[in-house]
Amino acid sequence: MEYFLQQVINGVTLGGIYGLIAIGYTMVYGIIGMINFAHGEVYMLGAFTALIAFLAATLLGGADSALGLAIALVATMGFTALWGWAIERVAYRRLRKAPRLAPLISAIGMSVVLQNFVQVTQGARVKPLPPVVHGGFTLMQAGTFKVDLSWLQIGILLLTLALMAGFTWVITKTPLGRAQRATQQDAKMAALLGIDVDRVISTTFVIGAALAGVAGLMVTLYYGVIDFYIGFLAGIKAFTAAVLGGIGSLPGAMLGGLLIGLIEALWSGYFSIEYKDIAAFSVLILVLLFRPSGLLGRPDVEKV
């Protein structure tokens, strides 16, 4: 029971991180119907930017680690947002009306570019960061086994919840969110009604990238090691989360992320840690077989 609880805590933390990345996939897919393959790399860029910003703030500026983290958070969100904007502008915008495969290939190319850009500029070696946030408290104790909830995990969960709540508010209540939903339903009609569709799509990329950047920051702190290759697997898993929850649906992305995180943590806890990625993919396949529109998605009706 204690062991189970510990795995659930770990899983929920991981799930929050996946959920943040999944939002970017689900929004972009919802609005222009493409898999933004480079999104995982934006998360990786976020992890590197966070590490560099944190080190720069503490080493060069002499700030303490709390201030350093705040600076890292702001810098990461800003820079990944800019990257999201630039990627859309350079690699996707001109391909809006191109054959369906063209943006996907362009996205795969962009993902190769970003991975190798980071490898060339920062080297291929794994980058370690010693733990910054220490401590936590013990929830339960059974014999020698302790159920720990660290401050870092609480911080990650709170920040995830706050971001998701804020983001849901933006989408449901603000004019920007209304324009975004309208474009998602029918881009041409939205344009006729005076919505700057290009701008809405750009904003979607910017918001998604900023959220992925925060996820990158969290992973840097949580695992303490990053390299230029982390974006690929995290990207696939987050996409799996988006599909699991029903692509195009925001609560779906969050729910999907949570489920994938839980499955991964419980699987590594009870079965084998080597096959944890396989578990996540099997779930994706099962969901698509039995409920292709995902848990919270609307069924996709094809009209002739």
Binding site: V90, L95, A98, P99, S106, I108, G109, V112, Q115, N116
Partner: peptide, 26 residues
């Protein structure tokens, strides 16, 4: 070696931007 894959990705994006339906058309 290092710059090879970087160039590969850039070429992939550029060709798609220039000819979205491939070098020889579909």
């Amino acid at each position: 070696q290092q710059y090879r894959m970087l160039a590969f990705g850039i070429v992939m994006v550029l060709i798609m931007l220039w000819r979205p339906s491939g070098l020889l058309s579909a």
